[in-house]
């Protein structure tokens, strides 16, 4: 598994408004733009930030991804999710 394409997708979702809009409206179609495996795409779609970190994706990106895209956009929820997965 390569984390590079995942990091590109998460970077875009963190900093680009049009990416966030596309992801929110049709996650599958949005993620198809990137060279992701089906497993990688599912981890992003499902906000599996613990799984992404376990695959060496930068925590800076997983945090930004969650707080800019998750329905709660809550840092508290993000940390609770991470800690529950430990």
């Amino acid at each position: 598994m390569s984390s590079e394409a995942v990091e590109v997708a998460l970077y875009d979702l963190g900093v680009k408004r049009e990416a966030r809009t596309g992801f929110a409206s049709d996650p599958e179609a949005f993620l198809a733009r990137y060279a992701l495996t089906s497993e990688e795409a599912a981890m992003i779609r499902d906000f599996d930030v613990a799984g992404l970190q376990a695959r060496k994706v930068s925590p800076l990106l997983t945090m930004g991804f969650w707080t800019m895209n998750h329905p709660s956009r809550s840092l508290r929820d993000y940390l609770a999710h991470l800690r529950a997965c430990q």
Binding site: E7, V8, Y11, D12, G14, S58, L60, L61, G64
Partner: peptide
Amino acid sequence: DHYVLFGPQ
């Protein structure tokens, strides 16, 4: 940078 100014590219 905190992975905002500069991207993976």
